[in-house]
Amino acid sequence: MSIWDWTYVWAAFPYLYRGALVTIQATLIGFAIALVLGLVFALVRRSPNRLVSVAMAETVEFIRSTPLLLQVFFVYFVGPQFGIVIPAWIAGIGVLGIHYAAYCSEVYRAGIEAVEGGQWEACIALNLSRSRTWRAIILPQAIPPVVPALGNYFIGMFKDTPILAAIAILEMLQQAKNFGAENYRYIEAITMAGAFYLLFSLVASAIVQATAFWLNRRYHLQ
């Protein structure tokens, strides 16, 4: 029995392919949630009401310092205890989104704080409304510079999707593991899964760099 057997590589492909689809779907939807919710968190955090802003900050801190796996368990299992059944898919992607929203909100916050104070003053002097100030002036300057940091979390989320296996979502790594268990051969399938994560990370980080470059040029920052 050789260490690496190509027949197993081909045999594992359909499994990995099915799993990869789930993984990519979960990442895309989860990250869309994280991007939007993260911005909401960041804006709530700037609330003039001190109580609201402190509560938001603490919540973000809490989400960031506890494991994603445990958060997934919490949402998926606690609901049914009170008669609320949340499908695994929704619980998994939802928690993924919320978890990374906490990280993204910190990134947005840094971006917003980096916008010069003079920009706010110019908006007051021109009598722009609060919402117009945010939409037209502040966010277009705050977001492009932080795209690389957001992109890193996108990649991070992709690599965290295997956690969903814990609530029986058949993402790529679980498929690889199942294939391994059925055939008593782990090496090919798990190595392939690892290679795919690595490939995705490298490609995605190149795309992120390009997007950041394009955005900064588009908005004439730097």
Binding site: E116, G118, E121, A122, I124, A125, N127, I137, Q141
Partner: peptide, 17 residues
């Protein structure tokens, strides 16, 4: 009331984008 007043700043504060 603020609409009656305009201001020019030392550091311009133009919108860079």
């Amino acid at each position: 009331v603020r609409g009656k007043i305009g201001m020019v700043f030392q550091h311009f504060n133009l919108f860079p984008h």
